[in-house]
Amino acid sequence: MKKYIYSLGITVLVPVSIFTGACSSDHAGTEVKKANPVPVTIGIAETTVDSNIHVSGYIEAGETAEISTRVMGFITGIHVKPGDIVKQGQLLATISNQDIQARRAQAKAMVTEAEAALNDAQKDYERYTELHQLQSVSTREFENASLRYTSVKAKAEAAQQMQYEAEAMLDYTNLKAPFHGVVVQKNMDAGTMAHPGQPILILEQSALHRVSASVPEVYIPRVRKGMPVDVIVKSTGQSIQGTISEVSPSSRFSGGQYLLKIDIPNSTHYTLYSGMNVNVVIAIDEHLATHEHIVTVPAAAIFSKDQLTGIYTLGSENTALLRWVRIGRTIGNRVEILAGITAGEKFILAGDERLYNGVPVAIQ
């Protein structure tokens, strides 16, 4: 009986010791690997004194025309496409005009008939005038001849005006370019029914551009026509000198913003297209400046994810700490920070693609 109990103890203890040894062996072979520090450059959020006005805007053509017709009819041909350079007076599109040509022919026939009747009435009037002076006809007969001549003359004039109207309507079936420019949009194709006032083509002046921008109410007392401005094209970084040419006196129909128009020089050195976004810097006279204190960081330190904007700051034990911020204006190569970081706070200015939230960093 004792032998049986002793053998059972061995049977139970041996598997336990094997399991314990296995676990101990596995734990000893596992090592926790830590990420290598990412080399970074540190910057400090600065307080900038800014006395200028910074607003956003966009490039627009000096002139824009929506090419449409005043008559209803099928489009028989469109002779240009988007991107084509056109000259003033060049034929752009044609509308079916058989009915208008028929009306013009009718008007011409009426003019011919009216001119013949007018010629006959004029001769009668001249003859009756001479006879009346010789007192060979009564005053009543002379007045009847005069009234007939006046009536026929009015009908001839009406027939002539009908012909002018038909010819004018015929001109609206041949759509021509109102100025030198470029075709930027084609809304219809040949065979489509054109309706009065419905744009068929959109034409923009290719050689002349200007900037449209909006200024909040707080800045409008310091903005005047003729003031010089700096225009920075966001996509290319080009800096262009411009001049304010128009200042809207009302913000009623523009959402509380006052619209500005800025003239920029016509130069082949600039690569400009309508719709390009720009930053506008308006230099304010010293006696009108407010010298606003703002917090800025280099634009290169800001990154965007989805609809959020963030910057990496230094966390405890030199780790990268992602912080979401709210940005404002772009001032040169720096960005205004409205919320999320304060003046004097350190942030990661530059790192490599291995940078992420919580990774150790090595300050260089």
Score class of each variant (00 low, 15 high):
Leu259Thr: 12
Thr268Pro: 00
Lys305Val: 14
Ile220Trp: 05
Asp171Gln: 15
Gln257Glu: 11
Ala45His: 01
Gly9Glu: 02
Thr192Pro: 01
Met193Ser: 08
Lys234Asp: 15
Tyr273Val: 10
His79Lys: 13
Val218Asp: 13
Glu66Asp: 11
Gln133Trp: 07
Val280Ile: 14
Asn52Pro: 04
Lys108Tyr: 14
Ala301Ile: 06
Gly73Val: 02
Ile100Asp: 05
Ser251Gly: 12
Val211Ser: 03
Lys305Gly: 12
Leu13Gly: 08
Ala114Asp: 02
Ser251Trp: 02
Thr342Leu: 08
Ser304Trp: 00
Thr41Asp: 04
Thr129Asp: 09
Arg140Val: 15
Lys155Ser: 13
Met72Trp: 00
Tyr58Trp: 08
Glu167Ile: 10
Ile5Asn: 09
Gly191Lys: 07
Ala301His: 03
Ala93Trp: 03
Tyr273Gly: 07
Ala166Asn: 04
Gly21Gln: 11
Ile5Arg: 14
Ala320Thr: 07
Ala158Ser: 13
Met169Trp: 04
Val49Asn: 10
Val16Lys: 00
Ile244Thr: 02
Ser7Glu: 03
Arg326Tyr: 10
Asn119Cys: 01
Asn52Gly: 11
Val247Tyr: 07
Gly351Trp: 07
Phe253Ala: 06
Ala114Gln: 08
Val223Ala: 07
Glu204Ile: 09
Leu118Ala: 12
Arg222Tyr: 07
Ser7Cys: 03
Phe303Gly: 07
Gln161Asp: 12
Met193Leu: 13
Gln238Val: 01
Gly191Trp: 10
Gly9His: 04
Ser245Leu: 08
Lys81Asn: 06
Ile284Ser: 01
Pro199Arg: 05
Ser274Gln: 12
Leu8Phe: 09
His54Pro: 02
Gly340Asn: 13
Met72Cys: 03
Met227Cys: 04
Ser56Thr: 11
Tyr219Asp: 15
Asn97Pro: 00
Thr11Gly: 08
Ala158Asp: 03
Ala35Phe: 06
Thr20Ala: 13
Glu165Lys: 12
Asn277Thr: 07
Glu204Phe: 02
Gln238Ser: 12
Ile67Ser: 05
Phe347Ala: 02
Tyr273His: 13
Ala362His: 15
Ala299Lys: 13
Ile75Asn: 05
Tyr312Gln: 06
Ser214His: 01
Arg354Val: 10
Ser68Pro: 11
Glu317Lys: 14
Val55Pro: 02
Leu118Asp: 07
Ile67Gly: 02
Ala289His: 02
Arg323Thr: 15
Thr11Ala: 11
Ala213His: 03
Asn187Asp: 11
Asn97Ile: 06
Met110His: 10
Tyr58Phe: 10
Ser212Leu: 12
Ile10Arg: 06
Val335His: 04
Ile348Asp: 05
Leu260Phe: 14
Arg210Ala: 01
Tyr172Pro: 01
Lys234Asn: 15
Leu272His: 03
Gln238Phe: 06
Pro199Met: 06
Ile44Asn: 07
Val183Leu: 08
Ser136Asp: 10
Leu91Lys: 03
Ile294Trp: 02
Lys234Ile: 03
Gly351Gln: 06
Val86Cys: 03
Ile67Val: 12
Met162His: 12
Ser235Asn: 13
Lys108Glu: 15
Gly57Ile: 04
Gly191Ile: 09
Val247Trp: 01
Ile100Ser: 08
Asp120Lys: 12
Ile311Pro: 01
Gln161Trp: 05
Ser56Arg: 14
Ala301Met: 08
Ala207Ile: 03
Val55Glu: 09
Tyr125Ala: 11
Ser235Ile: 13
